[in-house]
């Protein structure tokens, strides 16, 4: 349930960050979660620290296969607000918050050790719990291999669906056969660009692209 205090904090964040608060949900009835882009993370935490006297409890890191989720648990006068952000595994890099919360340094170093996420601008970048050679030579112990929900054998199906709206391409032999049979031109998304745009828009609206980990630029899954 949203208290007056919570309402005030969220309103303040909304006013100052606007659309940058991507999503709001709840971890427990008295425990709100806000999701911000990693570019706006520092701004969000700064508002909480400077305007609401928030303290950092700790940072959780979750490897979901495609992206890392970092959750900054902030305590504000008796209740906890969780600020969540995502880091793409291909980048594995985020700004350190030690500039505004110096005490975050040990947690960031631990996460760097265990997940291989680099904290840019951290006040002390040395390894915390692993030998110093580890970062250069070995995979971080809690880092999973890059992977998403689409199984290997399903990848061509999903990629062709996203690129053409159909799950099969048209081989040139079949094209010739169709002409020989005097079949009409196929009128699907395969050769109707405006219809294909609709399919791709649907994929974005329902966040199918995010869920399967599709890279629109490369027209391929990210794994």
């Amino acid at each position: 349930m949203e208290t007056t205090q919570e309402k005030e904090i969220l309103q303040n964040l909304r006013t100052q960050l606007g659309e940058e608060i991507i999503r709001e949900s709840r971890m427990a009835p008295d425990s709100p979660v806000i999701k911000v882009s990693k570019e706006k993370l520092i701004d969000a935490l700064k508002i909480l620290v400077e305007n609401h006297e928030a303290r950092l409890c700790t940072i959780s890191a979750v490897d979901n296969g495609l992206d890392f989720e970092l959750i900054y648990h902030m305590s504000i006068k008796g209740f906890i607000i969780h600020v969540k952000t995502s880091v793409m595994k291909e980048e594995s890099k985020i700004s350190s918050i030690t500039g505004i919360i110096p005490g975050a340094m040990t947690v960031e170093r631990e996460i760097w050790d265990l997940f291989q996420i680099e904290f840019d601008g951290i006040s002390d970048p040395r390894p915390l719990i692993l030998p110093k050679e580890w970062r250069e030579n070995k995979v971080a112990p809690l880092r999973k291999p890059m992977g998403g929900i689409v199984a290997e054998y399903q990848k061509p199906t999903v990629e062709t669906l996203m690129e053409q709206g159909q799950v099969f391409t048209m081989p040139s032999t079949v094209k010739t056969n169709r002409e020989n049979m005097q079949l009409p031109e196929v009128q699907t998304t395969m050769n109707r660009p405006e219809a294909l745009k609709e399919i791709q828009e649907v994929a974005r609206l329902v966040k199918f692209d995010e869920k399967v980990g599709y890279n629109w630029h490369k027209k391929k899954l990210r794994y």
Partner: peptide, 9 residues
């Protein structure tokens, strides 16, 4: 023929 259809899916 149905114009602009996608995979069913």
């Amino acid at each position: 023929d149905m114009e602009g259809v996608s995979c069913c899916p």
